[in-house]
Nucleic acid binder design. Sequence first.
RNA 1: GGGCCCGUAGUCUAGUUGGUUAGGACGUCGCCCUCACGCGGCGAAGGUCGCCGGUUCAAGUCCGGCCGGGCCCA
Length: 796
Amino acid sequence: MGTYHFDWNDKTRQTFSVDTPPPYPSGEFHMGLVLNWTYFDILARYKRMRGYNVYFPQGWDCHGLPTEVETEKEHGIKKTDVPPDKFRELCEELVDKYIKVMKKAIIRLGCSIDWTTEYKTMDPNYWRRTQLSFVLLYKKGFIYRGTHPINWCPRCETAIADAEVEHETRTTQLHYIKFRLEDSGFLTIATTRPELIPACVTVAVNPHDERYKQYVGKKIHVPTTDRTVEIVTDDLVDPEFGTGVVMICTYGDKADVKSVLKHKLPVIMCIDEKGKMNQNAGKYTGMTTDEAKKSIIENLKDEGLLEKTETISQEVSVCWRCHTPIEILEREQWFMKTRILTDQVEKNALQIKWYPDYMKHRLIDWAKSLDWDWVISRQRVFATPIPIWYCKKCNEVILAEPNWLPIDPRIENPKTDKCPKCGSTGFKPERDVLDTWFDSSISCAVHAGWPDKKDWRRLFPADVHPSGVDIIRTWAYYLMVRHLALFKEKPYKSCLINGMVLGTDGRSMHKSFGNYIASQDVLLKHGADATRQWVAGGGATGSDIPFRWQDVEYGWRFLIKLWNASRFVSNQLKDLESDENVEYTLQLLDKWVLCKAEKLTKNVTDALERCQFNIAMEEVRNFVWHVFCDRYLEAVKDRLYKPEHYGEKKRKAAQHTLYTVLYRVLQLLAPITPHITEEVYQTMYAEDKGYRSIHLSPWPTPDKARLDEEAEKHGDLIMAIITEVRREKAEKRMPLNTQIKKLRVYTGNRETALIVNNGKEDIIGTCKVTEIKVLPEKEEGKEIQGYPNVRFVAEY
RNA sequence: GGGCCCGUAGUCUAGUUGGUUAGGACGUCGCCCUCACGCGGCGAAGGUCGCCGGUUCAAGUCCGGCCGGGCCCA
């Protein structure tokens, strides 16, 4: 059984399950994923050492349009050129290729995943579960089919959900267009989308706008058409925008949808699924929206109806995958009722532990802001089929039974002879497929073993759901609504948020910005452990972190430092058979560093409990580099080199301390830098400690016996004296190894004198002192920083 | 317009419930050439913690206002 294997049969240890987000197999494991995966791998490794039976699965969220597009390109075909199952096969080949590449990157990064759990959402065994969840939600009344305004991406030619719509600021032209009043005269409206004039169903002004009160209720002629519409008032109209008169079209934006509903206006669609003008657009029929816009403006100009045009910047709604501006179309689609769950979402979001805490607002605010239910049908091929047929005669919906699944209605008929309503035997399949989020949003239940494992609730809800800040509104939200609807239970107990990776220029990292760094380059240059240090130490959990080569290099230098320190310790321990049964007399500085190691253990443990990886990282790096290496190792060298002078028991004490502290440090670092710690463990400790891997060793708990506050305080004083002596040598531009003939330390009192005397051997060894005198008097001399009464005089 | 977050040395950033001299990294400037490491070591300089006001014995931290930036949503 592998080191990271989850033991299903172990009922004694507590479980800890990670809801690993299955990534989209794009073929590149980018720095954002490195950040994400490192976070929860640190957590998984930490929990494993804490004694949990850690469940750390890995899946792949395979379906989606980018793969369709690339498959079409690669094979020079259109998705409709071949049967859906054939096209699916071609997509699967591509996805498998990309998964291989990404899997390699995850392994290289050192993630402690249990690969026996690997799954792909495109496997029939997975979409069986997606379909089952659809069937169950249908039966529970959460699924409905309806004709509603929906977001439509004309490039992808599919409906998309609110969560898939992003907003961008773009500069655009605001056209001032004269609409002829039926009586006489004109009103000038301002619009950025003149191509929608054929779909204009009313003209609106703000009810409080004095300028236009007289026109309310009057009829106005819609240019390019032979229609007139009534002028209405609407609070949504901003009197400051343009002329304060706007046209309401079906549909220009979501505000139009509200107005149409409010004023019970007709719907005139003039744009089709491909983003072209349809027959409602009159002479503009067949043009693209851009062509129609140009043409209409030309015509209005000719008629003298175009007053002026100005350039403004405007928020445009775009498709998050391709950044094409979306249209709002009215189409028949499948929906999941999500808004009825909003109160539940809020209640559960507040029960969940968020890292960091304020991220819960992202989920709650998003849930509350939704106007529409979730549109779950997509007009694509490479996705989970909707398990529905329609009766050819009476159009009755025939829902698949759970035991028919998985099933593709586009290929197979329902496993029933006749329509349950009219008895007819002809069926037509639902050709639409499910949103890919419908696949991935049951991950918590699927990871736990639903529906096949009887005891799946044992791993449900997941202990942690890790998520990028950008996908809280999709992943975290959809998980929540789906599991609440299916099981009346929240899907995860805690949510660990990672920020975005920024480029060295401070902007978010994008290929198009020219600030893109491929994770492969980073991993190849400095290795996984250095890269993971950049993640852990780069910034506070949840905040965006900039990519900096210097940070990775620092991590890499730290590894070299740790490696060399381990080498040194290993050399010094050559004659130490085993740490057991060694007689030693701990010296002040031994107790000092042991005490500091205990405090470090507590601080790192606390930080990891709170998912404050940056704090854990800094604590342990600081200790290893500055306390252990720069101070303790340097101070103890003399004692190690000259047992004949100090005595064997003092040397053994140093050896014991080195052995103990290095092991502690390796354990504390193991979750963050798994490779180097394992390597050192195997060569120096494995035989003695007996654990197969450092990652299976029990997490250290602070040893109260070693929490010697007095020794720490006294050691700090000895260290301060050493520092001050060095500072004087630096000030006098003398080499550090300059021999001091005589060092007099004045302590001001007898108590302090005893303390210094206790550590004088370390001062002698570290500062190269021939003779030291510790005197309780108060005398002139160089003051020790932080100890105003302690001074020294050195004779060189 | 609403919500959330942020503003700390030249640069990037840490700072849990308010409590010693605001921590770290990069960069800069001296010095060392010490037998684990020069991918080192020892030191130094550099901060009115955006601005204004308040609460408090005590504010980077809490409250209010202002200025500036980011994200999400209208």
